[in-house]
Amino acid sequence: MSPTEAARTITGRQPQAVRSALAILEAVAAAGIGTTAKDISAELRIPPATTYRLLNLLVAEEYLVRLPDLRGFALGRRAANLAPTPVTTPTAARAVMERLRSRVRWGAHLAGYLGHRLVFLDPDPDHPPVDAGELSRHLHASSLGRLLLAEHDDEPATGAARLTPHTVVDPRELAGRLAEVRATGLARQCGEFRAEHGCLAVGVRAPGDGRLVAGLALTGPAARVAAPNDDLVEVLRAHAAELGPLLA
């Protein structure tokens, strides 16, 4: 039976299988990197064949990974979605944001990325941003979301919702916008999320490997966001560079 077929046969009427799968996830999390199928089977007293099948299923779904020796297991990238680590924003980063807000008259927000979710690390108290959950559901329509999508270019850009008449939903056009973001490092959106608003965002990157850890966004009236705003973008980039070492 393939893992997906297994997933289909384990219905809500088989609570034991679901319970066992969750117990296995928990056991791997507790044991740390390198625990083996035998260890898990012995610890949880689940029959070996069942344990192996459930482990393969969890690996196929990427909640677990098999280590290079093929014996050991560890939590996979996808398991991070189950329990997002609570976010705290260092005081030094808040200070940088305060400085940015004193220099521009737009709303300035700092948002972090957890897997494919977006959470506000330091939203502008004077210009409250839209709900982070709503932003996470429509990553294609916001500049903070597009930074994230551009980073994971494997993400299929289908099924994008049209939030305003200006929202880019055509997969090819959206791919073009994302390529632009990758090339310039700047994401821009005018009236695509809320008709009257727009935003500019640049990535905050880890100093060493350059991975995306957060996004720094300025929000304002759509018409003004559409202007080149070269000076503003420079200010934004300078502050993002300053935030990198504080957040990574």
Binding site: I33, P68, R77
Partner: peptide, 15 residues
């Protein structure tokens, strides 16, 4: 195609 550090849970990557 072995599992690489990037495939792991973020908390395990540094180890």
């Amino acid at each position: 195609d072995e599992t690489t550090a990037a495939d792991l849970h973020p908390a395990d990557r540094a180890r």
